[in-house]
């Protein structure tokens, strides 16, 4: 095996190995920081992007919350407005109803008063007619027309 012919193969190989590997080591020591730097830069960029995305998400969240709170507030406001409007309308209605009721009651009272007055008047007239009729009946029966006062007295007597 040529490998064990040390006297011939060992020295030139070891010398060149130390030369080439040493140079390789120096080259790698100079080049590897760049590789590590790129990885680091990538990590920090990705981290920064993630942070920005997170911040944007939080921002959107707070905005959404504010929006929802605004919506809810507006809704309650509207609800309150509706309630008060309803209450106002009910109150106004009630007042109107009351007024109308009063007006109607007044009218009814007036009509009733008128009615009773007219009835009274009609009753008075009825007495006159009854007196007249009594006079006529008596005249027919007796041939003499009684005096008006006598007839009226008779009617009043009969009516009571």
């Amino acid at each position: 095996m040529p490998q064990f012919d040390f006297a011939r193969v060992a020295l030139p190989q070891i010398i060149w190995l130390f030369f080439s590997f040493g140079l390789l080591f120096l080259l790698m020591r100079a080049m590897l920081p760049k590789v590590a730097g790129v990885a680091e830069r990538r990590a920090s960029t990705i981290g920064g992007d993630l942070d920005a995305a997170d911040k944007a998400r939080l921002d959107a969240e707070t905005r959404r919350e504010a929006y929802e709170a605004g919506i809810a507030k507006t809704r309650t406001d509207a609800q309150g407005l509706i309630e008060s409007a309803k209450a106002d309308a009910a109150k106004a209605n009630e007042a109107k109803m009351k007024a109308a009721d009063e007006a109607a009651a007044a009218k009814i009272a007036a009509a009733e008063a008128e009615l009773s007055k007219q009835r009274d008047a009609a009753l008075v007239k009825l007495d006159a007619i009854a007196v007249d009729a009594t006079q006529d009946v008596v005249e027919r029966l007796t041939g003499t027309r009684p005096a008006m006062a006598a007839a009226a007295a008779a009617v009043a007597q009969a009516g009571s």
Binding site: V9, L11, P12, Q13, I15, W16, L17, F19, S20, F21, L23, L24, L27
Partner: peptide
């Protein structure tokens, strides 16, 4: 310290 086929390959690897 001859340049041999072995050392040539080492330089090639480098």
């Amino acid at each position: 310290l001859s340049l041999t086929n072995s050392s040539a390959w080492m330089i090639g690897i480098l």
